[in-house]
Computed example of a mutant assay.
Amino acid sequence: MFDEGRFKVAMRRLASGVSIITTVDADGEWRGFLATAVSSVSANPPTILICVNQSGSSHDALLNSRRFCVNFLGARSQDVVESFKDSEKRSGRFQMGTWKPIKTGAPALVGSLASLDCRVTSNITIHTHTIVFGEVEEIELGAANPESLVYLNGRYQSMHLS
């Protein structure tokens, strides 16, 4: 049998950017979660992919609404990260930081490195996760020389981009 714990240790050694993925549920409530599994797919048309745990509280809302916003986090977003990483704080997640809906209505974090507002084009189920592809409809850019927030060795760390 494969050692799942060992696999997780190995994957923690890969530095990943930290994002908050947001969406809107059928009742108009904002939902969101922290993610490191975000990747560009195509520049024409601009398309990205995100990986969403099927047991996550935002999974069904995201697939039903067919819209999401990927917010790339900077080092100054650590307080927002704290409110999103603990499921017990779910009801207060959007009280930290300043949020505003952009084109699709999914909330964008004001001051993030970039926010990519997307419409779902397709999705694939793989084991415990759903890979969701989204075509970018709107982009908001933050500071030109930001400090990016990365996840490495089980910790959030800042990385200066010059």
Rank of each mutant, 00 (worst) to 15 (best):
A15I: 09
D79M: 05
H127P: 00
A143C: 14
P46R: 00
L149M: 11
L116T: 02
V136G: 10
K8P: 01
G142H: 12
K85W: 00
L113I: 15
N153K: 08
R67Q: 15
L63Q: 09
S162V: 15
M1G: 14
I139M: 11
T98R: 08
K89N: 12
R66Y: 03
Y151M: 04
R90K: 11
D27Q: 12
A26E: 13
S162W: 07
S77Q: 15
R67I: 15
T104W: 01
S77N: 15
V24Q: 10
E138Q: 12
H129D: 01
K89F: 05
A61K: 03
A37Q: 13
H127R: 12
E135C: 01
I126G: 06
G56E: 06
N153A: 13
E82G: 02
Y151W: 10
A10E: 05
I21F: 01
G92Y: 03
T47P: 00
S16N: 13
S58P: 07
G28K: 03
S158K: 06
T36L: 00
D79G: 06
L116K: 01
G97V: 13
S83V: 08
A15N: 13
N71H: 03
V80E: 13
T98W: 01
S122C: 03
C69L: 12
I102E: 14
S87G: 10
L149F: 09
L113R: 01
R76A: 13
D60T: 14
Y151Q: 02
A61H: 06
D79P: 02
S115A: 12
K85L: 02
S112Y: 02
V110I: 14
V132N: 05
K103Q: 07
N53F: 09
A75W: 12
K100D: 04
A144F: 09
L161N: 08
